[in-house]
């Protein structure tokens, strides 16, 4: 098992909600990144979690920047550090709204320009900071405050969009698998160029499940095949162990949807759409792993 450093870069007693998995994600990201790191952060839940001026809950510098601007800000920061012969890690830590919606242009530009940085999207599948409005990353059928009848549209596949930029490294991860996340961040930071890690981050108040089930919810997402853990390293796709197992024998999707209030009353059609999408993704990734496509 991977040795996780004891050093903490995210202090205790933050203003995160009880059971917040995005804080777990950040904790392991920073343990992997270490002290020579700057976080660039657009508006997101972590804007609040980091604390109120003059305090900070982070033991690395955090540059807060406007919603659409994170990847571009990181471009400038990375260029300046590299010009000054500094190897400092520049990590964007952004939510799904700041990534798949308002921040996507800057993200695309930074990846196209081969910016040396790591972009982490922690995905709680809605605008959590503002009280759970739909985002492009909200899955079909999920109720949010702006889709009270359940979202009719499909979750935007940001991974395929990022893949189209052919980054040297990209991966998915999940807060329920911290060792896997730690290894992926470590590997990403050892590679020069634009890196992307998309982390599923279950959200108790937004998804409406009991706070103590936050780790279980992440595991169920993977075990039902609703979330696939994979890496793409210099074009080569590898599906990671837990998802390999889930592809052979997935748990019924109802085990994942059932405990979540956001899916209460979801239509049969929406469930079928979720299952069908998950199967298509699994098939595509398997073919990619085999090198068929």
């Amino acid at each position: 098992m991977t040795e996780i450093p004891k050093e903490e870069y995210l202090f205790k007693c933050t203003s995160a909600c009880a059971g917040c998995s995005s804080s777990l994600v950040l904790r392991y990201v920073l343990k992997a990144a270490g002290p020579d790191t700057v976080l660039v952060m657009p508006a997101c839940c972590t804007s609040v979690i980091q604390g109120i001026y003059p305090n900070t809950a982070m033991n690395v510098p955090v540059y807060n920047v406007a919603f659409a601007a994170a990847a571009a800000c990181a471009s400038g920061m990375s260029a300046a550090f590299r010009a000054g012969k500094k190897a400092t890690n520049v990590i964007v830590y952004a939510g799904d709204g700041g990534t798949v919606d308002i921040g996507i242009q800057a993200l695309s530009g930074a990846f196209e320009r081969r910016t040396d940085f790591l972009y982490i999207c922690y995905d709680n599948e809605a605008y959590g900071n503002t009280g759970m409005q739909r985002s492009g990353a909200t899955p079909t059928g999920a109720r949010t405050t702006t889709t009270p009848g359940g979202k009719p549209d499909t979750k935007k596949d940001i991974d395929r969009i990022v893949e189209a930029h052919d980054p040297p490294y990209m991966a998915t991860a999940c807060s329920a698998y911290p060792h896997d996340l730690f290894k992926k961040v470590t590997k990403a930071l050892s590679i020069r160029g634009p890196k992307f890690i998309h982390v599923l981050a279950p959200c108790p108040p937004g998804w409406r499940y009991p706070t103590e089930q936050t780790v279980e919810m992440g595991k169920l997402a993977v075990k039902t095949g609703m979330w696939v853990l994979f890496e793409r390293e210099y074009g080569k796709v590898t599906i990671n162990g837990p998802s390999k197992a889930a592809m052979i024998k997935p748990l019924p999707i109802e085990e994942y949807l059932g405990p979540q209030g956001r899916f209460k009353g979801i239509s049969r059609e929406a469930v079928d759409a979720l299952v069908s999408l998950a199967r298509r993704n699994a098939k595509r990734l398997s073919l990619q792993e085999e090198g068929v496509c």
């Binding site: 920047v65 659409a68 601007a69 571009a72 400038g76 260029a79 800057a106 530009g109 320009r113």
Partner: peptide, 13 residues
């Protein structure tokens, strides 16, 4: 950069 919004954001970073 790919836009002026990003031009100023990059200068800021």
């Amino acid at each position: 950069v790919e836009s002026e919004h990003s031009a100023m954001a990059a200068c800021i970073g």
